[in-house]
Amino acid sequence: MDESRVDAYLARIGVARPDVVDAEALRAIQYAHLRTVPFENLSIHLGQPVVLDEELVVAKIVDQRRGGFCYELNGALGALLAALGYRVTRLAAQVFGGGEPGLPFDHMVLRVDLDEPWLVDVGYGSFTHYPLRLVTGVDQPDPGGVFRIVRHGEYGDLDVYQDGNPEYRVDARPYRLKDYLPTCWWHQTSPESHFTRTLTCSRLTETGRITLSGAKLITTVGGRRDEVVLGDDAEILDAYRTHFGITLDRVPTVAAPPVAAV
Rank of each mutant, 00 (worst) to 15 (best):
H129L: 04
Y71H: 10
Q94V: 01
Q94Y: 09
A83V: 07
G75V: 13
R90G: 00
L132P: 00
L132Y: 00
N74W: 14
G85S: 05
G98N: 03
D115P: 11
Y71R: 12
V135F: 05
L110C: 02
P117G: 05
G85T: 02
Q94S: 12
L80Q: 02
S126E: 04
T128Y: 07
E72Q: 15
T89F: 13
P104A: 09
G78H: 13
N74C: 08
R87H: 11
T128C: 14
G125C: 12
V120Y: 07
G123A: 09
A82D: 13
D113F: 15
L119M: 15
G125P: 11
F96D: 00
Y130P: 01
P101L: 11
V95Y: 02
G78M: 13
E116S: 12
M108S: 04
L114M: 10
D113N: 13
S126Q: 07
L73P: 13
G137K: 07
P131H: 05
G125D: 09
L110S: 01
L73Q: 15
T128P: 03
G85I: 02
L132V: 00
H129E: 01
L84S: 06
L73K: 14
H107R: 08
T128D: 03
L81V: 08
G78T: 10
R111E: 15
R111I: 10
E116R: 15
G125R: 12
N74T: 05
A93M: 07
A82I: 10
G85D: 05
R90E: 00
D113K: 15
N74E: 07
L103Q: 05
P131I: 02
L119N: 13
D113W: 14
L119H: 14
G75D: 09
W118K: 06
R111F: 14
P104K: 10
M108N: 05
